[in-house]
Nucleic acid binder design. Sequence first.
DNA 1: GAAATAGTAAACCAACTGGTTGACAATCGG
DNA 2: CCGATTGTCAACCAGTTGGTTTACTATTTC
Lengths: 115, 115
Amino acid sequence: MVNNQSVALDRVFHALAHPARRTMLRQLAEGECNLTELAEPLRMSFVAASKHVRVLERAKLVRRRKVGRTHLCRMETKPVEDALKWIETWRQTWEANYDRLDSVLEELKTKLKKS
Amino acid sequence: MVNNQSVALDRVFHALAHPARRTMLRQLAEGECNLTELAEPLRMSFVAASKHVRVLERAKLVRRRKVGRTHLCRMETKPVEDALKWIETWRQTWEANYDRLDSVLEELKTKLKKS
DNA sequence: GAAATAGTAAACCAACTGGTTGACAATCGG
DNA sequence: CCGATTGTCAACCAGTTGGTTTACTATTTC
């Protein structure tokens, strides 16, 4: 059935995996921009930049609002929070286990010193 | 010059952008595994799984240790922490700006009520 | 109404992804 | 030594990504 939540995560992480899109997201964090403003700092054609915006939209990291002939883009934070939540759960597991591992190693080291 | 830090982030986010690799990472958070153990829960050939492990290695999320004929994989957390740090910085910006936007909107609403 | 601006759509391309199969190498257990 | 296990490598393939160019639409501005 290929979980929906999983597909959403796929898209978010994929969206974050390109420097041009991360640049856009940092810019969008400052506030709404239109496509021209988003494309301007990038060393690529306007069309290419427009495609990157679409990737961000597919990941629901960006919502678009048409105002006259310009398309204003606004950042959406929820999908990022979901991604962070996934990482956080994962982190809890590894911290539990790796901390345990570390204390086992520490115990071994202490025992070795005593012997 | 295409920043090195940026390439590292590209790889980490790309590594996280596939469900099979996330499954592997969740499993690795429990402790070291060999390739067979990592491949077993996935509905794909062993070779395909092995390629996913290589993607995780390229992102430095996994280190490999050869023990006899088995390859033990261990998770590395630093690259994830770096990725989280990037998101955190980004979040600080958007919280600053979107909170400000929200209070501006709140102020407007109050003024409207009064008039 | 004509020119400039903001953006989409379509065609194309090289490179990469994610999967397969088949053949091989190395190691372990009897 | 032989068979099973663990894993690699190479070739192949269809689909996606990330970029280009060229042509088009829609809106604003003069």
